[in-house]
Design a protein around this nucleic acid. Structure first.
Ligand SMILES: [Mn+2]
Ligand SMILES: [Mn+2]
Ligand SMILES: [Zn+2]
Ligand SMILES: [Zn+2]
Lengths: 152, 152
DNA sequence: TTGTAATTGAGAATCAATCTCAATAGAGGA
DNA sequence: TCCTCTATTGAGATTGATTCTCAATTACAA
């Protein structure tokens, strides 16, 4: 399914559905975790797949452009992604103590954003909402100890 | 005012309110624009102020920690900030064609986020909401032409 | 004044991301 | 099939923001 979408997207742009691009796509959709480009590259190499780092870095923006993946939690120094096809768009609650990422979706929230954009005559295409704080576990344990993700 | 806040914050941490830190603070509050660390450094140098890049990069996280500045629009490759003291928190609409950044604040939106967090038993501290699309001007001009900010 | 710890700046180091470029692959045409 | 043209690839070099290192300096309190 995502193959079809990607293939058609590439065709429309006069680009080819090569095995390297197919491999990246496949890996991206192999599970539902968030990932960063290097993770992906290492994992593919580990499985004996044939790709270069350059191809990974070149393919991800294409997947982004055709809407198969979205970027998430860029408070780290490098980009993170997740595939979105087959899921819906969602936002993220991020625990600054343990690093846990909790997906959040609210129709009401989405609608409200849309209506606010309309008021500004702004045509909204995408958005990123990241809420940072303490997850229930870390909250009850108290906030002592070292943050896993300082500077947030 | 912001001097007082910063000074007390530093004191509480056993850090000193040095002239370098004071200079960065002053520059950050000299106007209401968004900025990035290098801009700030160059501007300070241009005015003959005495700072190093290292001090700028060291001071900004402190200002972040004490709530005098917030980070915004990290879709560029480097960090951007704005001072928030004396303003309220607000979110941003970002035009992917011309790069314009439109501040947005909605009490309703903030409250809704809070209540969603409560449902998840998540203690929310901060959040970043960035909505990307076309501003009214770019929308009416049509979307032809090259994006100023590709990859968004 | 002296001791101690924090701070500073210059430059080196890091490291994600991008770019370069020669070698390849693939599609279509002759 | 053979040729040509263009897109693609990977290895490695390069970039550029940020962080780190470390010797020199400063601030402060005893
Ligand atoms: Mn997610
Ligand atoms: Mn703003
Ligand atoms: Zn947690
Ligand atoms: Zn615009």
């Amino acid at each position: 399914m995502e193959d079809k979408i990607f293939r058609e997207f590439l065709e429309k742009k006069g680009l080819k559905f090569t095995k390297e691009r197919a491999a990246v796509l496949k890996e991206v959709f192999s599970n539902h975790n968030h990932f960063d480009p290097d993770d992906l590259y290492v994992k593919m190499k580990g499985q004996g797949m044939k790709v270069s780092k350059a191809s990974v870095y070149r393919t991800l923006p294409l997947l982004l452009e055709c809407g198969l993946v979205e970027q998430v939690e860029r408070f780290d120094k490098h980009a993170h992604y997740e595939h979105t096809f087959g899921h819906g768009h969602h936002d993220h609650l991020i625990c600054i103590k343990c690093g846990k990422v909790i997906p959040l979706f609210s129709e009401k929230l989405e609608k409200l954003q849309e209506s606010l954009c309309k008021q500004e005559k702004f045509r909204c295409l995408t958005h990123i909402l990241e809420i940072k704080g303490y997850c229930s576990k870390c909250e009850e344990k108290g906030q002592g100890g070292k943050q896993k993700r300082p500077g947030v």
